[in-house]
């Protein structure tokens, strides 16, 4: 339990069968085969580039959209006091495999440029930064599994290291053969460090229970 100079403003949890935003069930998976496209249409998103993205970028972009849906902010100006820090365990393996399929057969060797551009996990931080004009730090970490304490530590360090930072999108954005696993939060700076909530434990609960 530690003292924090930040709060969780909102969060979004996306798994293979449901989307939860700030403790409310937004939608559950239906019969359709394309879960991520269903979420896109359900939230009324208008962003054609979404359909060109790999799964990891799609799910990260959707989560960011949901986390920020009720926040009032300048959508037209690049915000240097905003940052994005994401993590997962599968890196960009889902897209890497798809790319490998395009180069596997020497007789049918057509490397796909549009798949290749997503063969790095940190592209998703860039996609989110472009969409919401985030001009601060953009980082991506690969860990074995989700850990609320580690996330808490990364967020605390980001706010401590950069006094200009006011809003931080941070979370677990993973996509692999077994589908998606996302917990993305919006953290905002607060002046006082008086609170003693156990944010690490809270993050673990959000991850495990929803």
């Amino acid at each position: 339990m530690g003292k924090h100079n930040f709060d969780i403003e909102s969060y979004c949890r996306i798994t293979n069968d449901k989307v939860v935003v700030n403790n409310e069930l937004l939608m559950q998976k239906g019969e359709s085969g394309d879960w991520l496209a269903d979420i896109y249409h359900h939230i009324g998103m208008q962003y054609p580039k979404f359909f060109k993205m790999d799964h990891l970028c799609k799910v990260g972009t959707l989560a960011a959209e949901l986390v920020l849906k009720d926040k009032t902010f300048d959508r037209e100006t690049v915000k240097a006091d905003w940052a994005v820090i994401l993590m997962n365990s599968a890196s960009s393996l889902d897209d890497d495999r798809q790319y490998q399929e395009t180069i596997r057969d020497r007789e049918n060797y057509y490397p796909s440029p549009s798949i290749f551009v997503y063969t790095l996990a940190n592209i998703v931080t860039g996609e989110i930064a472009i969409r919401h004009k985030i001009g601060g730090e953009s980082s991506f970490y690969v860990f074995e599994h989700f850990d609320g304490a580690r996330m808490d530590e990364l967020v605390a360090r980001a706010f401590d290291d950069n006094p200009e930072l006011n809003t931080l999108l941070c979370g677990w954005v993973d996509y692999d053969t077994d589908g998606c696993d996302v917990l993305l939060c919006s953290f905002i700076r607060k002046e006082s460090k008086e609170s003693s909530e156990n944010i690490a434990e809270y993050l673990n609960q959000l991850y495990k229970n929803q």
């Binding site: 796909s112 440029p113 549009s114």
Partner: peptide
């Protein structure tokens, strides 16, 4: 520009 590269691949493939 990525679409342009994809069109080049389409022409060849």
């Amino acid at each position: 520009s990525i679409d342009a590269l994809e069109l080049i691949v389409l022409m060849e493939k």
